[in-house]
Amino acid sequence: MSVIIEQPKSPRSRKAANWEKRGWMYMRVSGVLLIVLIFGHLFVNLFTGEGIHQIDFAFVGGKWSNPFWKVWDVTMLWLALIHGTNGMRTLVNDYTDREGLRKTLNWLLWIVCGALIVLGTLVATTFDPCPAGTPVNLLPALCNGLTH
């Protein structure tokens, strides 16, 4: 089945919201915010301290004991995943010529996007920096003195 391209002369219906325009605007607004969020994320995690070598459970636990970094990371998760999924949707629309395949891939993209947003948000909001039964040397310093 071929893709139907509207005649340029036919006016767009004024009744429905213009989602294509909203998506276009979203890419630009989220893009600017993501530059701040991701550059900050990379600077703190990969540039300061021991960089990639400092990253372990204790490091994440230390960061996420501060609500500032939790909000930072969850905001980054939502903005980046929707930005990336919408970008992939653009590619699917450009490079598929069978309508069924195009729809299937776009559905798949948004299902994966939704599932990972739910997963990531739950992980961050229900996070326990001092889980019971974990060897003390794996835990962040804030767990010292806690007994389970």
Binding site: F57, V123, F127
Partner: peptide
């Protein structure tokens, strides 16, 4: 990266 980070909620040793 979202999936590997999700391991912090399952097991600290597995995440490490």
């Amino acid at each position: 990266h979202i999936m590997d980070t999700a391991l912090v909620r399952i097991d600290p040793a597995a995440y490490n």
